[in-house]
Nucleic acid binder design. Sequence first.
DNA 1: CTGAATCCTGAAAGATACTG
DNA 2: CAGTATCTTTCAGGATTCAG
Lengths: 125, 125
Amino acid sequence: MPADGFALCPVRDILDRVGDKWSLLCILYLGSTDRLRFNELRHSIMGISQRMLTVTLRSLENDGLVRRTVYAEVPPRVEYCLTALGQSLLGAVIELGNWAKDHAPVIAEARQRVVAPPAATAGQV
Amino acid sequence: MPADGFALCPVRDILDRVGDKWSLLCILYLGSTDRLRFNELRHSIMGISQRMLTVTLRSLENDGLVRRTVYAEVPPRVEYCLTALGQSLLGAVIELGNWAKDHAPVIAEARQRVVAPPAATAGQV
DNA sequence: CTGAATCCTGAAAGATACTG
DNA sequence: CAGTATCTTTCAGGATTCAG
């Protein structure tokens, strides 16, 4: 692991954080409403485990993208929402999401082409 | 807005592919020029291993985002460039990259705040 | 209800060496 | 130059359990 000091480090850094399995999903869902409770979010992002939701939310909170509000009630209630910083990221995420939705079939097609290449083509690389 | 988890599946799928450690960097660098040879790219993305560059480029190629052109010369020459599909993604990636660059200091600051929380804040959680 | 703490596994990624 | 082939290590993420 080299001590790197090049210009794209911040990009790498952010993408590492935001490019994990659940962060962008959390941001997308949190961005679609005002705020969500823990289990609301957990139910929205089907497939996420309780642990990963906690870990992801902590991570986003630590980066200042998500605000966590604890209500001193019983039973406990905790609500999450995007911070201004998180909202500023939301645009790019949504754009990425739209791209993904728009081009999903094309990509699926490209992948098919890999597993099932044309058999009759001769010579051509 | 989302409500239905299935709509976000393609997003998950794309983000999984594009959200790995090197793909977006490759797209960014390939998008910044017409085309790049293997070692040019490798030199640009400092820190990437030769293996991971190969793996990443294959992955992008399989998804139809990158075109690989082999010249039957000696010594071998292979050039990579974005396809139209790849270029269509470039916009969102650049926007994400710009966001990362713009907000890197704020995020760094937020992270600092986590490791060194204010001791005197009383009352509100 | 919300979350912390452990344990565990598969996949990702790095290092290295070899090849056309 | 541009890979491929292995080997090893790391670690994200799932399951489970405990706690406030």
